[in-house]
Design a protein around this nucleic acid. Structure first.
Lengths: 224, 224
DNA sequence: GCATAATCGATATAGTATTATCGATTATGC
DNA sequence: GCATAATCGATAATACTATATCGATTATGC
């Protein structure tokens, strides 16, 4: 058995970088480049070299070889371990609107360790239809199905107004982690983890950046 | 003219919290609660009180009153200023698949200062159809339309394989900021800002949390 | 083989972000 | 009016993250 790796040295920020590393590594030819150096990775992803080295040291099962780098296959293995890609978790999705459908049909999640096994929606017209192989059930089946299947992850893609009530149902069904796409601060008991996908925050960063850009530009113009 | 507020004290993390503050404040009754305290907000959003106070101090045009708090309307004004919601930026979206459609039909962006004016897709069947009032154009119209309309934001919701080429087109069209939903590290010139919507990273956090949870649980069981 | 240069790991430093503390201010209720 | 308690702003302490530096290690090419 692969011994349980200590994850303590891995910061939240580092965890966010792992998918990027993984993506890059998977794009490599394992025959041609058996090893990869932290420097190379850092350069490709525009990160600091030391930072990358530290991250890799934390996830790699074997340590890096001077002059060569880290073994690519080992790295991939290590990163996927840390990301939990090897233990596929089952999830349910609530809200089969456009966003919900987009997520349901996104095959990439499967590789990333998330398997959405069923969807729920309050709209009767959608019931028992199949979206990309996943059936849409009425809301009143939710709690029971989650409990019976021991599902631990719930994805919320319903309108803001219904997010909290859906959240409550999921918790009743025994969900332990919620991936929330509605812009609300969900109230949950302490044992439940909520990950907010905050589109508005992302937007804010973009618009903030553009604003600063404009400001800088206008300053340059006026001072020249 | 409202004088240009100095944004320097506002950290990236703080910026991420602003949409949450805003959402909460908008949910308040301005007649009933003219003032709101940092403590109240902190409690509602489960944040540290001092942190909230610092954030509010940075965005509020007027300082808070002891014992009362900050004026709600002023705060909303201040936050929206900082988020750039008062200068609605126009954007184009490339890739009218499920995710693209979800974003097109998400009305919330309008309030958040983003107005998607047009969509592009390589699939001829979609051309000139209208999704939620936005027309889908063929790819070869992209550069010209962006330039003519002076669009500065591009949203990429195409498959990974085409993301970079779409990105290049957008830049050719004069785009300054890119909101990228494809899991690729886009190569862009230094004046272009890229905001990656990293679903995989979010997933990682969830699975990481669940893993720790399981570990903790099993430890508790085995030690009892 | 041996010098060279690339890379590593470890440790130190710098930079950010969060949380704690404290005196000053002011609404509230007696 | 005056004591009280809630809140503020400022500053200090802590924790977290990123970057720089340096000696140790090892592939590469002569």
């Amino acid at each position: 058995m692969t011994e349980q790796k200590e994850n303590k040295t891995l910061s939240v920020q580092a965890l966010r970088r792992l998918p990027d590393y993984l993506h890059y590594l998977k794009g490599q030819n394992p025959k041609k480049d058996q090893y990869i150096s932290a420097s190379t990775l850092a350069n490709a992803l525009r990160l600091n070299e030391v930072q990358v080295r530290k991250d890799l040291a934390a996830v790699s099962p074997t340590s890096g070889k001077p002059r060569a780098g880290f073994e690519v296959t080992q790295l991939i293995q290590g990163i996927e371990d840390h990301l939990g890609y090897h233990s596929v978790d089952e999830a349910v999705l609530v809200g089969a609107g456009k966003l919900g459908q987009a997520l349901l049909s996104y095959e990439g999640f499967r590789n990333a360790g998330l398997n959405i096994v069923a969807a729920f929606d309050s709209n009767p017209e959608m019931h028992h239809t199949s979206l990309d192989g996943k059936y849409v059930f009425p809301m009143d089946k939710l709690v029971n199905l989650c409990q019976r299947m021991k599902i631990h992850i719930g994805v919320i893609t319903v309108p803001t107004t219904h997010a909290q009530e859906v959240c409550d149902l999921l918790i009743e069904g025994g969900i332990l982690a919620i991936w929330n796409f509605a812009p609300v601060n969900l109230k949950v008991p302490s044992h439940v983890y909520v990950r907010n996908e905050n589109m508005a925050a992302s937007l804010a960063m973009i618009s903030q950046h553009l604003k600063q850009q404009y400001q800088k530009d206008s300053m340059e113009v006026s001072s020249s």
